[in-house]
């Protein structure tokens, strides 16, 4: 178990460190800004309120939460303590709902939408990229510019285009929401059907974008590998083309997996904006609402959740990678 233990041990430690720094940044960034953060945060939230006592209550509540009169490290411990209890504060805009409650409802939507979409897009993109590298000629000539265009299209642009074409003009699919307005979330066949019906457009928009980026990456990787010396040597030895291609794509795949772990944050953030276009009830819409209402606790909670989500995802990919990477496996057999 030596090789695996070392690899996974390293990854777990790294995961914990990044998690710690993510929390620190989430804590620190708003506090580093000049001026009284509590006044800034509550000032924006209460700017429309006429009742001064409510504003004062919110200010006091937040002054206490932030503990701005105490030294920074004590503030940080209070923050950690609250976090450990799952306490992300109370939302300004949806008072008296807690942020944990709001985000608990929306994180499921984001998870169910984004991760399948990213994985499917990744797989299709890699297959197409590998094919383009292997076939070259006509297929490549079409696929490369198309992928470049797809990956260049911002996620929200793809979302709007799909929405207008399939939702508004053709009326095939619904334009907004995660389920029909006439339903309340519950476990039933009608509800699940409605969810699936609303799922298509956001799902497709994320998949298509992912395909573009992945296909370009896989194409270059595969071309590199196809020109590598071991391929030429294998050809001289008369090894069947099929077998060589198998090796080539496995080798080209490894950097693509690492690439996925590293770029998952970017993909998720693009998809969050696509959620807004579709008014999908996920984290993207939560942030949008939070920004709209200057709801600091909601924004800070959402960003923390997204960071944690991305960190966990890239950690999981790293773990999978450990099982696939022949170098880790080789160390295992030492």
């Amino acid at each position: 178990m030596k090789g695996y233990r070392r690899y996974f041990g390293k990854k777990i430690i790294w995961f914990l460190i990044t998690m710690f720094f993510a929390v620190v940044l989430n804590f620190l960034l708003p506090r580093l800004m000049p001026g009284d953060p509590v006044a800034g945060i509550t000032g924006r939230a209460v700017s429309g309120m006429s009742d001064a006592s409510v504003a004062q209550t919110i200010y006091n509540q937040y002054a206490e939460r932030f503990g701005t009169n105490k030294p920074m490290y004590i503030q940080f411990f209070t923050y950690l303590k609250n976090l450990a209890h799952g306490d992300l504060g109370v939302s300004f805009s949806q008072y008296p709902r807690t942020v944990a409650d709001i985000l608990g409802a929306s994180i499921v939507w984001t998870l169910v939408l984004q991760f399948p979409a990213i994985i499917v897009g990744w797989i299709i993109g890699n297959v197409l990229g590998a094919l383009a590298a292997y076939i070259r000629k006509g297929f490549d000539k079409v696929l490369l510019p198309l992928s470049l265009f797809l990956s260049g299209l911002p996620a929200f642009g793809m979302a709007i285009t799909l929405l207008v074409v399939f939702g508004i003009n053709l009326k095939w699919l619904p334009t907004s929401g995660g389920y029909s307005f006439s339903l309340l979330p519950h476990f039933s066949f009608t509800f699940i059907k409605s969810v699936l019906y609303h799922y298509w457009l956001p799902f497709l928009s994320i998949v298509l974008i992912a395909i573009g980026g992945q296909a370009i990456g896989m194409r270059s990787m595969s071309i590199y590998e196809l020109n590598a010396d071991y391929v030429k040597y294998s050809r001289f030895l008369g090894i069947k083309d099929r077998k060589i291609v198998g090796y080539v794509f496995r080798n080209a795949m490894l950097p693509q997996i690492t690439g996925l772990a590293l770029s998952i944050g970017t993909m998720v953030s693009g998809a969050l904006i696509a959620e807004i276009i579709f008014s999908y009830p996920g984290l993207g819409s939560s942030i949008y609402k939070g920004v709209f209402a200057s709801d600091y606790p909601l924004i800070s909670g959402s960003t923390l959740i997204i960071t944690v989500m991305v960190l966990v995802a890239s950690f999981a990919i790293d773990i999978v990678y450990g099982f696939i990477d022949p170098r880790v496996k080789a160390a295992q057999n030492e």
Binding site: L25, L29, P37, G40, T266, V268, S300, S314
Partner: peptide, 16 residues
């Protein structure tokens, strides 16, 4: 690994 978009949101919101 920490998504830069999250940092962007936090910083932009904090700047006001």
């Amino acid at each position: 690994v920490i998504p830069s978009f999250v940092l962007l949101i936090l910083i932009s919101f904090s700047i006001g």
